[in-house]
């Protein structure tokens, strides 16, 4: 090769990237492991001269900490609820989009719109739609000014209003709102990927099925889903990874309190826990939690890959 003599040139070109990666990627990996295994490590105290013992104390403390378990619970519930719902909905929409010609491009654009948004900004819109101005506390002169457009729709169809996100709302109602918002937010990416996959499936499979008079449901189950399985595996895995890192969408709806005013922190997630620990200068605890999060993501991804190895047709 002409350039093999000039390998110094390659390193010169790579220098900026390597320097920045060493400082902001490689060192943090090493340092996070170090801090996680120093009991009760705190950057502030280290500067003050405190010496920390090596051990797994941070990990033990984190998993015994009720707040962490609550965060883990909320994160897991959100993940388990939103990934299947958004994947199935996205699959149905993608299949429907793929089967039409008129308006296909237009509808495709519409379904992509939630992607081009700021999850905090639109979270505020969802909060407005679910918010009750006034109170439903059952007192004498209570004044409900507006129950929010979602409750208006429920009442229009003869239901009773629900306290979704206000003071006194239940955990289940809060989670429901979050699931709706996260699914709405997750659909565009999944539809885009699945539609791309559908469009690359050879039409002859469908023609053959039609000749045989195969029913629509059977075509979906026996042809579309198997041939689409690499893309389905991809959106499920990225969905789980994103789900375990859920944080800003909750801030969008509930604000920094991460819950209704009377139950702040109730909807906190794993990522929220890490940032809370960091804000209170407990880097050891934050690092341990971050490594646990990484471990969970790794395990879930490996399980998904293992399952898809058996199910995915490449």
């Amino acid at each position: 090769m002409v350039e093999s003599k000039h390998s110094w040139k390659a390193w010169l070109y790579l220098a900026p990237a390597i320097v920045l990666l060493l400082v902001f990627t490689v060192w943090p990996i090493i340092n996070t492991v170090r801090m996680a295994f120093l009991d009760d490590y705190s950057g502030l105290e280290e500067v003050g001269g405190t010496v920390f013992n090596f051990g797994v104390g941070n990990f033990i403390k984190v998993v015994q900490y009720q707040r962490f378990l609550d965060c883990l619970k909320t994160t897991s519930i959100l993940c388990i609820a939103t990934v299947p719902i958004s994947t199935i909905l996205a699959l149905l929409i993608a299949v429907a989009l793929n089967s039409i010609k008129v308006l296909q491009k237009f509808l495709q654009t519409v379904f992509f719109l939630p992607y081009v948004t700021n999850s905090i900004a639109i979270g505020m819109v969802f909060a407005a739609m679910f918010n009750i101005v006034g109170s439903f506390l059952g007192t004498e002169n209570e004044l409900v000014v507006t129950a929010g457009v979602i409750n208006n729709v429920i009442e229009f169809f003869g239901g009773t209003h629900v306290n979704w996100i206000n003071v006194g709302s239940t955990y289940a109602a809060n989670i429901f709102v979050m699931v709706v918002y996260i699914v709405w937010n997750a659909l565009p990416f999944k539809i885009l990927i699945l539609l791309g996959g559908l469009q690359s499936i050879n039409k002859q499979y469908y023609d053959a099925a039609k000749v045989d008079g195969t029913s629509k449901g059977r075509i979906l189950r026996k042809i579309t889903v198997p041939l689409l399985s690499p893309m389905l595996a991809y959106v499920v895995i990225t969905g789980f990874i994103g789900g375990f890192k859920e944080y800003t969408s909750i801030i969008g709806i509930f604000g920094e309190t991460m819950g209704p005013a009377d139950a702040s922190g109730r909807l906190n997630t794993m990522v929220g826990f890490i940032y809370d620990a960091l804000a209170s200068n407990k880097q050891g605890r934050a690092s341990a939690a971050a490594l646990i999060l990484f471990g969970i993501i790794l395990v879930v991804t490996l399980i998904n890959l293992q399952v898809s190895k058996k199910k995915v047709h490449y």
């Binding site: 990627t25 943090p28 990874i241 890490i274 880097q283 999060l293």
Partner: peptide, 15 residues
């Protein structure tokens, strides 16, 4: 390094 969640970097980068 792409597999590692960004939160893991943030803790050290903040310092």
């Amino acid at each position: 390094t792409m597999m590692i969640p960004g939160e893991l970097f943030t803790i050290t980068n903040y310092g």
